[in-house]
Amino acid sequence: MSYLCPLCHAPLAAVGKSFLCPDGHQFDKAKEGYVNLLPVQHKRSKDPGDSSEMMQARRAFLDAGHYQPLREAICLQLEQAAPVTLLDIGCGEGYYTAGFAQVVAKKSGTTWGLDVAKIAIRYAAKRYPQVQFCVASSHRLPFADNSLDAVVRIFAPCKAEELARVVKPGGIVITATPGPRHLMQLKGQIYDNVMLHSSEAEALPGFVVEHVQSIGWTMTLQGCEVVALLQMTPFAWRARPEVWQALAAETAFNCETDFVVRVWRRETLA
């Protein structure tokens, strides 16, 4: 199994340090080992995705183990499914992907990581050479129809039609989304009225929910860890300078996590 050309959608063949399609489109591997499959015409900005500072903050926070129970919960579901081909969508710097790859390796399988942010994929590929990483759009997955046993999405967008296209009949999609009380205390530092996350599940046509698990715990964070966590969130831009300063001075900030993990089974074709 290989990638599809993002320009003509023909299969790409690995030739040396490049990927080539029959129409002559060529995509070279970077020195870190990843391949950029995001043509400029598919970009919404010059450098889409998270910045280098955000990636470094995310890596430091995740490396400290604060979200390890979430990774373990998803790995447990993957152990039961035993996929041979797996894609992690929105993989960032690869913390979760590396854990998933350990499960897939037990079946001598292959794990791919995909993100729109080139800086994130560069970090990931350099650190986790056992994973095949690519820069690509989650709305135009560079994989063939019915080619993947499993897809994991942690807080990552993707068109349901694309998931239904690439996942094999009988395969799975695992999603992790915020539960109602996720990061309530952190949000309380920013918003006057803190709203609970919606508990309504998204619709994934072509899939049936097979398993739902709520998982949460309380973290006690130092100031630099709270700042790193805030940098990982979509509401960081709403934080005033004095909020950043106050959080950086924290010595024991207690904050709840709340995740919902769902396992979706691809319906078999009639």
Rank of each mutant, 00 (worst) to 15 (best):
M1Q: 11
K159W: 07
L70I: 15
P11C: 11
L141N: 00
F19K: 04
F259E: 03
L12C: 02
A203K: 15
A124C: 10
P129A: 09
L230G: 00
V40N: 06
F100Q: 02
G113I: 02
E79S: 10
G113S: 07
G16W: 08
K29D: 05
D28I: 06
G92S: 03
G33W: 00
E53L: 14
M219N: 05
L269V: 15
A81L: 10
D149G: 09
D88L: 06
T218R: 15
Y123F: 12
E72K: 10
G179N: 08
R262V: 04
N254Q: 15
Y3C: 04
P69I: 10
C158V: 09
R262H: 10
Q222P: 03
F235S: 08
W237L: 11
Y123Q: 05
M1E: 01
H197T: 11
M1Y: 07
V40L: 13
Q102W: 06
A14I: 05
E250L: 08
A10N: 13
W217N: 10
A30V: 10
Q185K: 12
A120H: 05
E242M: 09
S198M: 10
S52M: 13
A117K: 00
I119F: 03
C8Q: 09
L4F: 02
A270Q: 12
N36Y: 08
S137L: 06
K187P: 04
K46Q: 13
L230V: 11
R140G: 01
G223Y: 09
T111L: 11
T233K: 10
L86S: 03
S198L: 09
V208Q: 14
